[in-house]
Write a protein that binds this DNA or RNA. Structure first.
Lengths: 240, 240
DNA sequence: TCACTTCATATAGCATTGCTATAGGTGCTA
DNA sequence: TAGCACCTATAGCAATGCTATATGAAGTGA
């Protein structure tokens, strides 16, 4: 029994379901467990939520937003790609904190339930990437980028959920996160930053530009301008 | 009923289970369906396979190896990274061909069943990456690389399984595959080749340098020099 | 005040699920 | 033929998601 200070039955069902899903590690949660903990009977559940999945979706609606977009965990920084990293990490944290709920959402292949949630998460990711694209930081469309990043995020989260908490190594997450972000990003510093112990970003970018200029000369600069430009570029590259 | 030319009951169970799992799209498959199709009764199933999961594991053992390592789909080329790509694509194909089986293997979070299969797939990936590492093509340990690639592979596969077959866009797979491979690879050509059809490399490099200079001003250039330099940089960046 | 509707909950039970206690063949070796 | 190990069937259990039906409560109009 769980009276919860006279909360209405609907709220008690939500709370009980969330509690059971969060605590019973991995094992499936039955409607009878939920209704018993909530102190109501079966028809009440079906009256309010239609079916078991409806209840779970309601729990997700209440919980997922909180993690991915909620004020507690996310405040846009104005730097879109930094926000994307934050979304990735929040997504992972949500999965590790609510493994059962997470597997219902993302480990599931039923075409009628999963895409709704995925599309939601994807849309949120896409918002950030739209800003990145507006800032010229993307080299693919925000939609493609969002799908790729989210797919990798889900894969990493499922893998980390599946192994004992003690063995979890978050390098997997960081590494994969940077891999997909750099792949959709047009910022050279990111590409090379993924390589361990790179030179400073200015130097790397200067080297890259230098190399690029050798194969294709821009028409925007006259020959003399270009000569001086390359001289400066060369000087910048020499920073150690 | 399914007599299958007098195959023994154990084989008939395997075949029936595989058939049902492959055909009944997304819906769960019951033991009664399986035993009925195989023309046996319930205890036969439990005698041979212990429980439902045991049967599914047996089906997986028979089917997964075939796709990932089987002769039909995989022959090492001697180029480790090309082999890794092949493994990725075979993994994806297996998931799309056997979505139910796949979700049992990878969409599942029960710590006792999933890691076995994952470790198997991971080990296979790792073998290839060991060769890549021996050839100096990796910039992280083969183990880390294998986990990252496999995680992304699983995420992409689940995402593509979840959407209608007609809408599937394999660019997502190709893009993400190249992203994680390039991130663990030490070959620079891969890193930059991963940028598809973006702006010209000169423009991208110029934009990157511009961004880098904003956060850290080099001492090699005087203020006036820097001002002119940035002006030119800006001009180069405007190529369309 | 009294029907009347509407919403919310309970009683009791159905069909299906994974699984099993027990017993009955079936073929082999002695 | 007897005994034994292996395989399969009869019948049924407990748990699951879900529901047909009925009861209570709370408002609404006359």
């Amino acid at each position: 029994m769980n009276f919860d200070g006279q909360l209405p039955p609907k709220a008690r069902l939500l709370k009980s379901a969330a509690e059971l899903l969060a605590n019973s590690a991995g094992a499936p949660v039955s409607t009878r467990q939920i209704t018993e903990l909530a102190g109501v009977t079966a028809p009440t559940l079906y009256h309010h939520f239609g079916d078991k999945e409806g209840l779970f979706n309601a729990v997700i609606d209440a919980g997922f937003e909180e993690y991915v977009a909620g004020e507690h965990n996310f405040a846009p920084t104005g730097q879109p790609l930094a926000d994307v990293r934050q979304i990735w990490d929040n997504h992972l944290k949500f999965g590790l904190d609510n493994p059962q709920l997470y597997s219902v959402m993302f480990g599931n292949i039923r075409p009628e339930s999963r895409p709704v949630r995925v599309a939601e998460a994807e849309g949120f990711m896409e918002e950030m990437l739209d800003k990145a694209a507006a800032a010229g930081q993307l080299c693919v469309s925000p939609k493609e980028a969002a799908r790729s990043i989210l797919a990798a995020n889900v894969g990493v989260t499922l893998m980390l959920i599946a192994e004992p908490a003690a063995d979890r190594n978050f390098d997997l997450s960081d590494m994969t996160r940077e891999a997909v972000i750099s792949a959709v990003s047009s910022e050279m510093e990111l590409r090379t930053a993924a390589a361990p112990l790179g030179a400073s970003s200015v130097v790397v970018a200067a080297i890259a530009l230098n190399a690029a200029l050798e194969s294709s000369h821009p028409e925007q600069l006259s020959t003399t301008e270009l000569k001086l430009f390359l001289e400066w570029l060369h000087r910048i590259s020499k920073t150690s």
